[in-house]
């Protein structure tokens, strides 16, 4: 069964709906018309570009190009994690810890899934590797950035409590345990919620896509379950690593709380 091809003019019709919506908000003076249009243009341009990149990648199928693409993806995700934190660790640690945590978890889970579970030939076949890594990275990024943000702001807010616990002779792991638990929780909640609501409230995007592309629903469901589990493992291990490394960095070799290792938040921006 072939997918019905989409023509540019057909996309234009969908775009017209967005333009109509933005016109309505301008008329009603709701102040979102402009950003709506900009975001719509960004989507079109970014996805078109990535489409070209993927076509080239699929055509060549060389390992080094797939690896380069994967590396670029993880670096961009690392930057995104950093900018999403209000009080980030200074000296490149915010970027370093986030990127390394995502690299370790997303890459190992992706490689494991490709080689052991799905098994395409070659194992790095870009048609499988890149979408899988992309979905994993996207979710891991959300988890890691939420957890790191919660960790650093939590430590800042509870600095007196943490120090008082240190004064009573508690090891740093114990003094920071409440904040660490909170951080881990906020990193994992979106994934847990997504798993709980899958199929009941929301039809996951990948499954929908496969069904639209003509796969039998039973196969699409299997793939979706596989993806859900790998996303959970990737996000969980990434968040775990980031929270562990981040909270270690907040204390020095004498187990002192070192808030001077945090940047103060910018007055504006994200």
């Amino acid at each position: 069964m072939d997918v019905i091809t989409l023509e540019w003019w057909q996309l234009g019709l969908a775009a017209a709906m967005v333009v109509a919506l933005s016109a309505c908000t301008v008329v009603a003076r709701l102040g979102v018309g402009r950003s709506l249009l900009i975001a719509a243009v960004r989507t079109a341009v970014q996805l078109t570009l990535i489409g070209l990149v993927l076509e080239a990648l699929f055509a060549s199928s060389r390992f080094q190009w797939v690896a380069l693409m994967a590396l670029a993806m993880v670096l961009i995700a690392g930057r995104e994690v950093m900018t999403r934190q209000q009080r980030r660790l200074s000296g490149g640690w915010a970027f370093g810890i986030g990127t390394l945590a995502m690299f370790l978890s997303s890459f190992s889970v992706t490689v494991l899934t490709l080689t052991v579970i799905v098994g395409p030939t070659p194992w790095y076949a870009p048609q499988y590797a890149i979408p899988l890594l992309g979905m994993l990275l996207g979710n891991t990024m959300t988890g890691v950035s939420l957890a790191m943000d919660r960790l650093t702001t939590g430590v800042w807010q509870q600095r007196s409590v943490i120090e008082n616990r240190l004064m009573l002779g508690q090891p740093w792991q114990e003094a920071i345990s409440d904040v660490r638990r909170e951080a881990m929780r906020s990193g994992m909640i979106p994934t847990i919620n997504a798993m709980a609501a899958a199929g009941v409230v929301s039809l996951p995007g990948m499954m929908t896509g496969q069904i639209l592309a003509g796969s039998p629903p039973a196969l699409a469901v299997k793939y979706q379950i596989l993806i859900m589990f790998t996303i959970t493992a990737g996000t969980g291990f990434g968040t775990l690593a980031a929270v562990a490394a981040g909270s270690r960095r907040l204390f020095d070799h004498r187990e002192r709380l070192r808030l001077d290792r945090l940047h103060s938040p910018k007055s504006h921006g994200r």
């Binding site: 002779g169 090891p171 004498r254």
Partner: peptide
């Protein structure tokens, strides 16, 4: 270690 010292020399 830091925590062992603070357990011995305690600040209130």
């Amino acid at each position: 270690t830091g925590h062992a010292w603070r357990q011995t020399v305690m600040l209130v």
